[in-house]
Amino acid sequence: MKIAFTINGSSQTVDIEDGNTPLLWVIRDILDLKGTKFGCGKAACGACTIMVEGEEVRSCSYAVKFAEGKKITTIEGLGTPENPHPVQQAWIEEVVPQCGYCQPGFMMATAALLEKVPNPTDDDIDQNIINVCRCATYYRMRKAIHRAAEIKNNSNS
């Protein structure tokens, strides 16, 4: 079946036998965007988090057929080194990543959170940011999330 969607601003059509294929594998292996990670395949770790129509989605548990006509954003579409998203800017300022594998998922979840809650409290962060980081960079992530909100709000005003 053919499925058409927009990913990081560019229109794509994929032809795939099984419409139930997780979007994760289409993003990684067909569209060759490797920033979205496979961690557990069970929507438990959050390493594959992306945005669909601005909503936070775990792509390992999202059938590609549901992407028809949708706008998808992955870490590659969030920002660039020249023009980083406030979340990426904050992540750089706080030097958050260690091994780095889970970080795109966390940054996507954070970007989605800031769209809904421009000034998240610690409780908002605890409730919404529930991905797993084995290096346990949570301490810096919390700082970076608050910092990202600050950068984003300043650039908006």
């Binding site: 929507a43 909503e55 936070e56 775990r58 548990s61 549901f66 959170l113 769209e115 529930i130």
Partner: peptide, 14 residues
């Protein structure tokens, strides 16, 4: 607010 049921649960079983 951001992490919802639909972050993981879609309209069909996976």
């Amino acid at each position: 607010q951001a992490t919802k049921c639909t972050t993981c649960h879609q309209s069909e079983n996976n």
